[in-house]
């Protein structure tokens, strides 16, 4: 290897490793600062509270990261799909039973993922395609629910929503479990490799014989399944669903992915980073909540963190290329 290439390599590697660790490092810094200034912050109990607060956003963000990693930016339909799946889950569970509700919702999620994947492939524009689907999903949720509140009375569902095995909420267990699995998927599974390669260079992936269109569909299916899990948890916890659930959450999902430092262009990073991004945001929010920071400031800070994270990662990755 020649000298310049070696020089660039060493810079690139160091920065990339740094980028991957940045979320963790920031979490540690905030934790220390917050712990010193806010007594209630640095306790095991509060740590669990933060994981729980991050879990619902985090599960969707993990799913979203597959879409981003596969080179398809973001799906802007996640929150609307969540509402639709929540409504369907409540309807089916109320009419039949819990297993049927879960089964129908998972089938619906897969279907929604595939349909959106087809649309993304046809239009070549994930943002517009999923935005349109978002409107369809929200509209369907509204129609199916009759704009009312759908209640379920199901003890098994309530258990899923409120149980705390070993003192930790089911939502937190699921979040941690999915984060671990998602890391394995990207690092060890064939599909993960296909997602990464499709995102790293779509043309090269096609030229290498990868079925990029199918990979796109599968990434959206995985996102939809994540959304379905969150929809089920939310309905189960409060025993009700309505069509305006999760309104405005898309920003949170995207923020988690970005703060985690996943390359916008795709092909670099792991879903674990999105999970960490969600925890980082929850950490910030918790810190400000405990210090009684006003809502406007809270939004400003979270927004600033997102902008800062994107800028830093963009700079680092720019050097890396």
């Amino acid at each position: 290897m020649t000298s310049i290439a070696i020089a660039r390599k060493s810079i690139g590697r160091r920065t990339w490793r740094f980028a991957s660790l940045a979320a963790v490092a920031t979490i540690v810094i905030i934790a220390v600062v917050a712990g010193l200034t806010t007594p209630a912050f640095l306790t095991v109990g509060n740590g669990l509270v933060i994981i729980r607060a991050a879990s619902m956003t985090g599960i969707v963000a993990i799913g979203m990261s597959y879409v981003t990693l596969s080179g398809n930016l973001f799906a802007l339909s996640a929150s609307a799909l969540g509402a639709l799946l929540a409504v369907i889950f409540a309807l089916v569970t109320a009419q039949t039973d819990l297993p049927a509700g879960i089964a129908v919702v998972l089938v619906g999620a897969v279907l929604a993922g595939v349909l959106q994947g087809v649309a993304v492939n046809l239009t070549g524009n994930p943002i517009i395609a999923t935005l349109a689907f978002g409107a369809v999903f929200r509209g369907l949720a509204s129609v199916l629910s009759g704009n009312g509140v759908l209640r379920i009375h199901n003890t098994a569902a309530a258990w899923i929503g409120t149980a705390r095995p070993l003192g930790v909420p089911t939502q937190s267990w699921t979040f941690v479990f999915l984060a671990a699995v998602s890391w394995l998927v990207i690092r060890k599974a064939r599909l993960g490799r296909q997602i990464i390669l499709s995102g790293a260079n779509r043309e090269a992936a096609v030229a290498s014989g990868l079925r990029v269109n199918i990979v796109t569909c599968l990434a959206l299916v995985m996102l939809s399944v994540g959304v379905a899990i969150v929809a089920i948890f939310t309905v189960a916890q409060f025993s009700e669903a309505r069509s305006n659930l999760f309104s405005g959450y898309d920003f949170d999902y995207i923020a988690a992915v970005l703060v985690g430092g996943i390359a916008l262009r795709g092909g670099q990073g792991t879903p674990l980073q999105a999970a960490l991004g969600a925890v980082l945001i929850a950490l910030l929010e918790n810190f400000m909540l405990l210090n009684n920071v006003s809502g406007g400031l809270l939004m400003t800070v979270v927004g600033t963190v997102v902008v800062g994270a994107i800028s830093v990662f963009h700079l680092l990755q720019g050097k890396n290329r």
């Binding site: 109990g45 509060n46 939310t234 918790n286 909540l289």
Partner: peptide, 25 residues
């Protein structure tokens, strides 16, 4: 003691804030 805004109007948002405020106080 505190006036904390949520990000929405529904159960999940209320829970998110309450589950953090209550243990702290």
């Amino acid at each position: 003691i505190s006036v904390t805004p949520t990000a929405g109007f529904l159960e999940d948002e209320g829970y998110k804030v309450a589950s953090q405020i209550i243990p702290a106080h």
